[in-house]
Amino acid sequence: MTERNRYPGYDVLVKRHSPSWNEATRRVMDARLGVPREPRFLSRIEWDTLVAICDRIIPQPKNRPPVPLAAYIDQKLKADARNGFRNAALPPQRAAWQIGLAAFEVEAHQLHGKAFHHLTTAQQDDLLRRVESGRIDAPAWGDLDAALFFSEHIMGDIIAAYYAHPTSWNEIGFGGPASPRGYVRMRNNRRDPWEPVEAGPGEEARVGRENRRVR
């Protein structure tokens, strides 16, 4: 996959020892970056399905280490960390994920005779869209409202995990953690030296050099 890097050379982690990061932030980010890459709550089958789903919800470029999205979902389920509210039509999140992942497998086998993670990306996307719009027929879903499960958990949990990761901040040019040092220049088109520069087409090399000085 080739895609334009809008903030070439920018690495928010370089600021780790700058005044932009405090001790609490370093503690939290160390834990985030050190997440175990193996399932601790989900079964191996559920994990494989989840990894494949994550790859479609947030397809990641091959030229950098991927954000281990499935690991964050597994971690959230293991800790049973919740959001503080649950649509009454859904079971608690652990049950929702387990039923949902199993149902994906059943659907994949019914439609294509293969495990979900062995489907082509087009087949995976197609199945995801069916679930998203509630066009499902496998009894494996039981009482689970598939469309709701898709928006609350598949999208909600996976996307939140991705944009909580420094790699995604580099991608969108987010300044990242900011305490005690915040920002000085508030108006449009103004940049503090610890913020990344955006590269227009063809400017990648020059901007890359500038962004490597951001700290």
């Binding site: 932009s20 990061w21 405090n22 985030r32 919740r82 503080g84 509210f85 649950r86 909580a164 953690p177």
Partner: peptide, 17 residues
């Protein structure tokens, strides 16, 4: 921390329907 996810420690995350 300067972090959205871990700062959910401030929120009421016990379940409500």
């Amino acid at each position: 921390a300067s972090d959205e996810t871990s700062q959910s420690q401030l929120f009421w995350t016990d379940e409500r329907l």
